[in-house]
């Protein structure tokens, strides 16, 4: 059992602020939500800590502006954290703080140990390169030098996400939003990463496409036994996918627990409001 309990990803006291801060906002009571009216500093993530275990899907919910996406950007090194620690079991046995590594090492981690699917496919894909090229980009970045092998792996992945084989050399800009999202998933999975970050993957897709993308994520997760951190403001998505859920508000984690528990018996006032506003 001990082995099972080693977290894949462990985040400790992550803070991210935009702005320098001032003596006035040292006292957190004086903030308006998470904003300092004197110096204009925004405290996007405040003292966020959590663990993700192997094969687990961790959901993060919260209203817009609660710091969910900033947290995800910090985890994928798209943003620099103000302070905090992150440890990956697959990187130096989880003994090195990822946020202190050089940008070259962080790139290595992104390319080899993590995959991310952005809400906006423009951020995750090169729209003018072919779909298979987009997948190859991640494979090349991880040191692959064999065209035949990359083509096979890319085709296999595109098959898995239901992109017709004859369209694999087409650029994602020609694809519909749902297809672009599926290409992003294929790209994120190309190096068999132990950890996948999903940032509002189904927001903006129509319902039937949403369902098929969620189905896909669920089945891939079961098949490959990867851990997922999933951000969404859609409780339906969280209910369907997440084993455990964090609720964020104004940059803080205000409640966490099993998804069923959170949804059936919310403790915090905001969570109660959130659950009750579910149609």
């Amino acid at each position: 059992m001990a082995e099972f309990e080693v977290p894949v990803l462990s985040i400790k006291n992550l803070n991210k602020q935009f702005g320098k801060g001032c003596p006035y906002c040292q006292d957190e009571e004086s903030l308006v939500k998470n904003y300092c009216p004197v110096c204009g500093t925004v405290y996007a993530c405040r003292d966020v800590s959590f663990d993700v275990f192997p094969g687990e899907v961790l959901g993060i919910v919260g209203e817009s502006g609660s710091g969910k996406s900033t947290l995800m950007q910090c985890l994928y090194f798209d943003q620099e954290v103000t302070n905090g620690e992150a440890y990956l079991a697959d990187y130096h046995n989880g003994e090195k703080n990822l946020f202190q590594e050089s940008s070259q090492q962080q790139r290595y981690i992104r390319n080899n140990i993590m995959g991310k699917v952005y809400q906006n496919p423009l951020l995750g894909l090169k729209m003018n390169f072919s779909s298979i090229g987009n997948i190859a980009e991640k494979l090349i970045a991880a040191g692959n030098q064999h065209v035949g092998m990359m083509e096979n792996r890319g085709t296999e992945l595109l098959n898995k996400v239901n992109i017709p084989v004859h369209r694999r050399k087409e650029a994602p800009k020609n694809f519909s939003g749902g297809m672009q999202q599926r290409v992003q998933i294929a790209k994120a999975l190309s190096n068999r990463p132990p950890l996948l970050l999903l940032d509002e993957v189904t927001t903006g897709l129509d319902l039937s496409v949403q369902a098929s993308v969620l189905d896909l994520i669920k089945s891939l997760q079961r098949e490959l036994n990867i851990s997922i951190v999933l951000v969404s403001h859609d409780l339906g998505v969280i209910r369907m996918l997440a084993d455990r859920t964090l609720v964020m508000l104004e940059g803080r984690v205000i409640e966490q627990g099993l998804t069923d528990q959170i949804l059936e018996d919310p403790q915090h006032r905001y969570t109660q409001q959130l659950v009750h506003s579910l149609l």
Binding site: S130, I132, G133, E137, V147
Partner: peptide, 22 residues
């Protein structure tokens, strides 16, 4: 400039990969 600084050249190979695909 950052890509050169970090010796991140997957883009250069990717452009050749695209030619092979096309």
């Amino acid at each position: 400039k950052k890509l050169h600084g970090e010796k991140e050249y997957s883009g250069a190979w990717l452009m050749l990969f695209e030619q092979i695909m096309k």
